[in-house]
């Protein structure tokens, strides 16, 4: 990073002198960041749409008529519908005990909650194979009881649960720590029970973070590839989720359809981020509204 020295303006000292407020530094930094962002973040997004519409809207639309693709969309939605609520509940429980209480091993618990974030999805997939595969830890027992997990929808759900477990908790924990427990304590003295407090005090206070965590969790569930590709049997129209379907179409010499399906997941991602922007703005407005009477 080239940082230009601040031009001395002794005659008219500006009201606030901060590092990097010189016009040249400012321009260079903004310009540089915008350029790199355009190249590395915007261009890939544009490329997906450009490739998807390379042969026109007709070819694009045709990609979604294939029954296997429609099935993949259904399966992906279904997986998200199961995984997101479970991880929302887990996130609330984890945030509750970590943010509201002090206990030995609390830091370890925080680390554990965040663990899946630092672990390669491939390792998650392999680990699940070692538990539920026919050769795995529980394999013989599952087979004896005729329970099918591996290479079927349950394995896809389990792998997705692992990969996205931290998302909601990550959003809630810092916020709930920052907010403290005064309101909850007040509610307790007023005689409210735990569920009532959670529902009427805590959740409304963190609802935006909760929504964003859930949205991000949703986007990740729909897009998980590495872990799912190990535990799914790649059966067309049976265990193919959207990301796997993209790879499959790509290898079926059907790049247009692959990119067309990819636009769908890209849109999910973009909607998630737009939702976040809106939520943040609402949140900021709320904080402002709350702050005003105090002043």
């Amino acid at each position: 990073m080239a940082r230009e020295p601040h031009p001395p303006e002794k005659a008219h000292p500006p009201r606030r002198i901060r590092v990097g407020d010189g016009p040249l530094t400012r321009r260079l930094l903004i310009g540089g960041v915008l350029l790199v962002t355009a190249l590395i973040l915007v261009a890939p997004l544009a490329a997906i749409f450009a490739e998807a519409f390379r042969k026109g809207v007709g070819a694009y639309a045709a990609a979604f008529a294939a029954p296997d693709t429609q099935y993949a969309i259904g399966l992906t939605l279904f997986t998200a519908m199961i995984v997101v609520p479970i991880n929302v509940c887990f996130g609330i429980a984890a945030a509750w005990c970590i943010a509201k209480f002090r206990f030995p091993g609390r830091n370890l618990l925080v680390a554990l909650v965040e663990l899946p974030f630092s672990i390669s999805p491939i390792i998650a997939g392999i680990a699940y194979l070692f538990v539920y595969g026919a050769q795995g830890l529980l394999g013989p027992w599952l087979e004896a009881h005729d329970i099918k997990i591996m290479f079927a929808v349950p394995a896809i759900i389990l792998a997705s649960l692992f990969v996205t477990a931290p998302f909601v908790a990550r959003e809630l924990i810092p916020l709930m720590i920052a907010q403290g427990s005064e309101e909850e304590e007040a509610a307790v003295t007023l005689g409210a029970g735990g569920w009532r407090i959670l529902r009427l005090v805590t959740l409304p206070n963190v609802r935006f973070a909760l929504l964003y965590g859930a949205a991000l969790c949703n986007a990740r569930v729909m897009g998980e590839f590495g872990a799912v590709s190990i535990v799914s049997g790649n059966i067309r129209g049976q265990t193919n989720t959207l990301p796997l379907q993209i790879e499959l179409l790509y290898q079926d010499n059907n790049a247009i359809a692959a990119f067309a399906v990819a636009t769908l997941l890209t849109l999910v991602a973009l909607v998630t981020l737009v939702a976040k922007a809106i939520i943040e703005r609402l949140d900021a407005a709320r904080v402002k509204a709350q702050a005003r009477p105090g002043h």
Partner: peptide
């Protein structure tokens, strides 16, 4: 720009790989 920063978190990695290779 602020919203764009989170694109890599929300975008499926396979889609990112496909786009980058293209």
């Amino acid at each position: 720009l602020d919203a764009l920063v989170d694109v890599p978190f929300a975008l499926p990695t396979a889609v990112a790989g496909l786009a980058l290779s293209a």
